[in-house]
Each structure stands twice: as structure tokens, then as C-alpha cells.
Design a protein around this nucleic acid. Structure first.
Lengths: 206, 206, 206, 206
DNA sequence: GAATAAACGAGACGGTACGTCTCGTCTTATG
DNA sequence: CATAAGACGAGACGTACCGTCTCGTTTATTC
């Protein structure tokens, strides 16, 4: 289980007998973890540190989450619920350029770096990776998916290419460069990538 | 330092005074590490295990390598020196399809999975990441780079798009799917990706 | 801190919040250490060996004791609480001869040899030496002190010589020979030493 | 073997075939060890440190000495060859008081503390202890032995008490207090000990 | 003078213990 | 009875020192 289930925090539910502190405790844990994530990489955050900072027993941590990685997912999600507005310029390519630029800005920011850490840790923690896909990849692809949809409807984007492939064509290079750092990644690159994706690499027969 | 420096083993260099660094020992360490890498993920490999398996003192490990990750790089490289032949069908697109398919096969194999682990560990070990770029990313991009060159010369590939960007457009989506696993990655996908990269996403005005 | 503080086990003290220090664990550590002390010299006993034998984590050792020497003190004390009865023959000199003989027997036994090891290790571990004085030297001198008292009261021993000096006059030569081994140390010597101490070395003017 | 054997340096002995043992090297080792002994306790001196300071290979150390403790004995002896003059006041008791005071001064000095370390290390290194007896205990008892002799001849000291026992009666308490530190040890104590040894502990029947 | 042999420096090496750290579980007293 | 406090077993970490070994160099004796 991950804390997610408590987030709706339905106040109408008849309260259980006994102690009701749960929600306070869960929130404290997520808050503490979120703060720690800002200060140090996921790998260096210890369960003890989370418990200490949250003023919570370590046993409580393990009661609600199987390990600290999954706490981090919940904690990170809690700070990520701001909806990223998707642009609507009337041109799919321009929409993507704009969105892609702000995506790059985000992924290069401290907050975005945490995403990389989830992918990294996910390589040896399949639960984490699965949750990451569910909670971050899927929802965050919704906006671009909509932009793609509009582009197809407006006849700007080829309808015969798989939507997911289209998205990976754009975000794949970004993630790759972000993780490996073999090439720069900035607004200039953003425009070049979008242009390349749209125009294709085939030489125009002149 | 990483073991690399001993590999050239220039016999003309005047040997130092004391006991010479034992090539047998270095080889045993790399061999042991390589074998362990086949059996378990990098994260689960311990310095003790390498030392034990190689019949070597732990101090010797730390004398020559700063940590086990960099041993793993050297060990993995030692098993990777087979040159991947690049296809030459006469068509750049066909060349890329073929090469891309075998790249995917490799990255999905146990050996290729180790690459993912390097990227993962590299997120919290910048020395590892730098070495990884130098030893794996750079050399392995040589083949595709040549294929790109030929494609440009034959007038099949646009010369005005940065070579590195072109490569990331192809391999970025692969790495992304490999690491995150949100979409399938097989020969069919390989063809679709190459086709998309070449033809571009812009709808053909009919 | 050394385990001592738990031994009185005052049940009236309000217990702390969390899990209590396990007496079973402490006992196992002391038992294991005691058994090891019987088999090998203190210097050759390792923290790992104690932990392994006690079925205990090494961290637990270091949590309660700063190092293995102080564990050994506690362990040794635990096996030493048998009170050595002091003789009461009516003659101070005879009392001392008897007590001194059994002291020598003890110090030459495996158990007594441990005392020498404490003194030896104490030369480079002042905490150990201080604890040794407090736990062994002081209590074990009580009996002889009482014998001295009786001798003084009965008018057999000069009251004007410092009690501690008197004791060192007897036990000093024993310790010296025990540690350095330059001269024999047996019951015959015991009698000779006591006689010499009582009668003095001054030639009797005839 | 310990370096001692080279000291006689018999030049008539037919020299062996190869390169000769370098006296410079031996001297450098002893000098370096002596200097280290002044700065830190024997236990903390490492073979590497000696080798480094002497500008000598560690192998050379182990070629001529079985371990660092025995080097230390040789090194310490080299700085100890000053002959301690024994007093001759005409009174044995006064002689002993004077000699005992300067003995205490020495044993409490940094140099004298090394003696304690030899005894301490000797408890787990019988070679060291044997050598210590031979090189230090035996020769340093010569002076007091002579004083005893004169006292006996002058009719001041009882001739029927074993000479060694007499010496231990004096130096035993000193060593004991020196090693264990349970009682003070100074010039006042020196006088009291000698007085007690001479006069005996028996109450004078009045 | 060349061959031979040991001493020597440098320093690599296997072994072993150190004391610390984090993990995830378990126990106990408190609210 | 859910928690906090925190003890605990397991086991990896990277460091330190030990005493041995293997080189290449130096210094002497012997042929």
C-alpha cells in the first residue's frame, strides 16, 4: 500500500474506534520526505531520517509503506499536483515547442531531477518503477496527448503513427540526454528536436 | 584510476622499482566482477563478493579502483570489445532499421540490462556516469555515426540536422522505453521508430 | 557506559518509552566473552568473534560498550563475584601467608592470567585501566585490608605504616614476578615474602 | 635474531659472498624506532612508519627482526647504554633511598614509560618478554645487587634473605603502582617503602 | 673484468579486524 | 490499540596494519 488511499481523506466516513491520528501522521511523513527530497538525492535519504524529521516512529513508516522509495513517490506526488497548463497556440508544432521547453526547464530543475532518481532507483525496484509509471508517466503524458489529438484533428499531424510513439519520439531524446548528459539540453535543442520530429530526417529531393 | 590504463601494457616503458602490479590479479578482479554482473544487478554486488570470488584482498580492490561501480565499468568493457559490425545495405534507412533491431536485442539481453544499471547508478555517482559516457556511449555511437555519414553523402539524410540530434532521435526513445517500460520495444517498434524519424510527423497535405 | 549499570536492575525506576535493553542479549554477550577469555588471550579476541558467539549484532556491542576491552571487564567480573574468604588464624602473619598462597594460585591460573592481560592492555587504554582499578583492585584489596586491620588491633602489625603501602609491599613483588617472570613464584616464595615483609631486611645487631 | 648480533662486528670473520649487511641501514632503523618511541606508545607504532622514517624497505625490517617489538627493544637499548651510577653513601639504606628515588624518576619519565609498554606487550609476546628480561631487567638489577652486597658485607642487611627477593620487595611495589596507578609514587613514597622494607612490618613489642 | 650472490628500495598483495552505517523487524510503555 | 521510542540481527562499508612476496638495483666477493 502507498499513502495514496488516504489522500481523499473523506471526512464523512465514520471514524474508527481508537486513535485517529493517522492522517496527521501520514501527512507529517509525506511532508518530511518531500523536504528531504529537496535537500538530498533519494539514495541518500534514510528511513531513520524521515522518521526523525516527521517525529514519527520508524515502525509507522513500514506499517504504511513497504520501503522509503514508495514513500518518496507519494511525497513527490503530493507536491506535484499543480496542473501544468498546456498551451494552445493554434499550431500543434508551436504547442509542442512551448510545452517541450517548459518540460525541459522542469526536468532540469531540482524537482525534475527527482524524476531521474525514480527512474534510476526503479531499475532495481520494480514496484517503484511500476508506481512511477502509473503516477507520473501516465498522467504527465495526458497534456501532450491532448495536444497531439488537436494536431491530428486539425490535420497537422499524421494520424497513422501511434500516439505513444509520437510522444516518445519527443520525450525520449530529452530523457536520454537528461540521464546520460552526453549532449546539451536547452531551448535551442528543444526547437531543433520538435522541428526534426515534425519534418523528418529524410533529405528533400530537390 | 581505473584498470584501463594497464590494458595497453606497453612493454617498452621502463618498469618501476617495486613489485609490479599483477596483471593476473587485475584480470581475476575483472573476471570475477564480470561473472557477478551476469548473475545479479550491480547494486547487489558487494566489494566483498568481488574480492572473495577473485581470491583477492579487498584492499587491493580499493587500491586500484575507488569503488565497485568503476570496477564494473572496466569489467563490462572487457567483455564488450567485440566490434558490432554495422550493416551496409545501400539504403541508410534500411541500415538503421537493421542496426536498431540488433541494438534493441542487445539492450534487452542480460548484457544490455547492465547498461541500464550503469545509467541508474550513474544518477548518484557522477564519476561512473562520466566514465560510462566515455567508454560506452561515445564508442558505441561511432557505428551509427558512420551510417549517418553515408546517408548524408548519398543524399538520403538531411545534412542540416545535427548528427547527435539525429542519433538521439532514434536511440532516445529506445533508452526511454527500456528504462521506464511504459511501452513495448521490439522489432516492429524498431521499424516504426525509424520510419517515423525518417518521414517526420507532419501530416502530408493531400 | 559499561553493562554494570544494568546489573542492579532497579525495578522502581520508571522504564523508558521504547523497547527495553534486552538482558538476555547483554547476558549472552558477557557469557560469550567470558568463554572466549578462557580460550584465548584478550588481545586475540575480536569484536566479531564475540558477536558471532553471542548470536548478536556487532552494532549492539558497540552500542553498549565502547570497545571489547570494557566488555571483557564486565564479563570477567561476572565470573568473579564469588567472595574469596579470608583466613582468620589468630595470627596476622599466618593469615597473610595463607591468603597470599591462594592469591598466587589464582593469579597463576588461567583466570588469574586474565588479570595480567587487563593490566597489559590498560597500558594503552586508560579507560580500561581505570575500570580495572575500580572493579578489581579496589574490591580485592578489601580482604587483605581487613586482615591488616585485625593485625594492627592485635598489636601484631605496626600501625604507623600506611595500609596501602603495606599491601603493595606484599602484592607488588607478586605482580612484578607474575608479569615479568624473572623469578619463581610459588608457595615457598609466598612464605619468604611474607616473612621478609614482617621481619624487615635490617640485619639484627647481634 | 635481533640486531644485537651485528654490534660486535667482528672484522676477522670471513665475509660472505654477496653484498654485506649495511650498518647504516641498521642504525637508521634503530634511530627511527627510537624517535618514534619518544612520540607515541609502542602499540601505535607501525612497521610501515618505522620503514618510512628510516628510509628503508619494510622487507629489510622483517629480514633482521621478527617483528617491530623486537626492533623496539634494540632501539631502546641503544638509547639506554648510559650507565646509571649507583650511590655509595656508606649506608645501604641511604644508598637504596637515593637509587630508588632516581629509579622512580626514570620510570615516570617518557623513557621509563616505555619499559611499562614492554612489559605490557610482553604479556602477549613471550619473545619480547624474554628479551626484555635479558636486556633490561637483568642488567639494571646489577647496580642494586651491588648495593645489596655492600650492605650485607657491612652487616647492615640480613644475609639470610634471598637477594632477588630483597630487590623485588623494593622494586615490586614500584612497578605495581607504576602499571596500575592505584597509589601515588614519588620521593616520599620512596623513602617510606625503603624504610618499611628495612624495618619490617612487625609491631615492636614495647 | 665478468660472474655471482646477497642486501636493499619500492611497493603490491592476501588476510583480517576495525568501528560505522542502514535496513527492516521486533518489543515495550504511553496516550 | 495505534504510536513513539528505540533495541536488535544482519551484513556491507572503506580503512588500517600485518607479514610476505616479487621486482629491479646496488654493492660486494669470488673466479
Amino acid at each position: 500500500m502507498t499513502g495514496e488511499t488516504i489522500l481523499p481523506s473523506r471526512p464523512d466516513v465514520p471514524k474508527r474506534r481508537g486513535r485517529q491520528r493517522s492522517l496527521v501522521v501520514q501527512a507529517a511523513i509525506l511532508k518530511a520526505t518531500g523536504e528531504l527530497l529537496e535537500k538530498k538525492p533519494l539514495r541518500e535519504i534514510t528511513a531513520d531520517a524521515i522518521a526523525r524529521r516527521a517525529g514519527v516512529s520508524k515502525a509507522t513508516l513500514y506499517k504504511w509503506w513497504p520501503n522509503k522509495n514508495l514513500i518518496a513517490v507519494d511525497a513527490f506526488e503530493a507536491r506535484m499536483n499543480e496542473i501544468v497548463p498546456i498551451p494552445d497556440t493554434g499550431s500543434a508544432e508551436k504547442d509542442f515547442i512551448e510545452q517541450f521547453k517548459s518540460a525541459i526547464d522542469f526536468y532540469k530543475s531540482p524537482g525534475g531531477r527527482i524524476i531521474c532518481q525514480f527512474i534510476a532507483e526503479g531499475q532495481s525496484d520494480s514496484d517503484l518503477l511500476a508506481l512511477f509509471r502509473e503516477r507520473f508517466v501516465k498522467p504527465r503524458r495526458e497534456g501532450p496527448r491532448l495536444m497531439w489529438q488537436r494536431g491530428v484533428e486539425r490535420g497537422e499531424i499524421r494520424p497513422d503513427v501511434d500516439k505513444e510513439l509520437f510522444l516518445d519520439l519527443i520525450y525520449g531524446p530529452m530523457i536520454y540526454r537528461l540521464l546520460v548528459g552526453h549532449c546539451p539540453l536547452d531551448h535551442t535543442q528543444a526547437e531543433a528536436i520538435i522541428a526534426a520530429v515534425f519534418q523528418g530526417m529524410k533529405a528533400i529531393p530537390s
